[in-house]
């Protein structure tokens, strides 16, 4: 066995050589002169470095510019801790809501045929095309003092705007499509045969969903939740409009970054920003891993 491998390495078979020639011929037809290649690669690398890598590096450089102690004490500040807590709470609420909605909507849309499906998907996508500021504004118009429900809320002493419910609502609006959009194409591609098989074997609807559908889409669910969570924790514009910026109460992490930055507390601002940047990096790494899993699932179903 090892001999064979050694042979094949040292003496490529005529077949392999022919293939190599063919590949070289194909490449020469499909590529550009060396100078052009180098220029394009250099342009791509420089552009991505200046516009994407450097800003990321700056965040950490600024955060640690006064040393690690200043960094840690900035994070230990009660205001920072309150912002972290609020961010986690809001993300948990909106991710939870959108997870349930995403599963329900994907079941209805991917597993059944009905007219108006494309239109419904377009409606679910709407928040992607709405400016974050407008996403906040619509809730101000509904629940603000001059809003449609403003006086009713005041009479019943219910606080939505400038409080957690408003922040959670705006965040849910902004992150609305993520889970559904991750699941609908996946479930459409998987079809309904496995579910039909389960039903014909006597499984109930819930048994079918939990035993057959969910295991098949689990990586897709994680993928949607991951992106949804990243956006929920990082949302700035929409939350900024509805939060009222009450220190220690309605400031999420991105809002606190803004406040500290405007107060020239750069180390503190960038310390919080560095946490969010790390969240982004972890999200990207996890996303890459999940995409590999999703591709594998795709290949397995290809047979």
């Amino acid at each position: 066995m090892t001999m064979q491998i050694a042979d094949s390495v040292s003496l490529p078979s005529p077949d392999a050589r022919a293939r190599a020639h063919a590949a070289a011929a194909r490449d020469s037809l499909r590529t550009e002169p060396r100078a052009v290649r180098m220029t394009i690669i250099a342009l791509a690398i420089v552009f991505l470095s200046v516009f994407v890598v450097l800003p990321l590096v700056v965040v950490f450089a600024q955060a640690f510019s006064k040393g690690i102690l200043a960094y840690l004490s900035a994070l230990a500040d009660p205001e920072a801790l309150a912002a972290i807590r609020l961010t986690l709470l809001v993300a948990a609420i909106s991710v939870g809501l959108n997870l349930v909605f995403g599963l329900v909507a994907a079941w209805a849309i991917a597993k059944f045929e009905f007219s108006g499906k494309t239109f419904l998907i377009t409606l679910i996508d709407l928040p992607f095309s709405v400016s974050p500021v407008i996403s906040g504004l619509v809730f101000v118009l509904l629940f603000g003092a001059q809003g449609y429900f403003g006086s009713w809320l005041r009479d019943h002493d219910i606080q939505i705007l400038f409080a957690v419910p408003g922040i959670a609502l705006a965040t849910t609006f902004v992150t609305f499509p993520f889970v559904a959009r991750a699941l609908i194409p996946l479930m459409q591609e998987q079809g309904t045969q496995e579910e039909e098989a389960a039903i014909s074997l006597g499984a109930s609807g819930l048994q079918t969903f939990f035993r057959v559908t969910l295991p098949n889409i689990k990586w897709g669910v994680l993928y949607g939740v991951l992106l949804c969570n990243a956006r929920a924790m990082g949302e700035f514009g929409a939350v900024s409009v509805v939060s009222g910026h009450i220190r220690g109460e309605t400031n999420t992490m991105p809002l606190l970054v803004e406040i500290l930055y405007n107060e020239y507390q750069f180390v503190a601002a960038f310390a919080i920003a560095s946490l969010l940047a790390m969240l982004a990096l972890i999200t990207l790494i996890a996303k890459t891993v999940l995409e590999r899993h999703l591709d594998e699932g795709h290949d397995a179903s290809d047979h």
Binding site: V52, V53, P55, L56, V58, V59, Q62, P132, A230, M233, G234, E235, F236, G237, M253, P254, L255, V257, E258, Y261, A269, F270, A273, L276, A277, L279, A280, L281, T283, L284, K287
Partner: peptide
């Protein structure tokens, strides 16, 4: 990265 990085962080950076 621009997809994933919160906009406020991108702004200050």
């Amino acid at each position: 990265v621009p997809f994933a990085l919160p906009t406020a962080v991108a702004g200050v950076a």
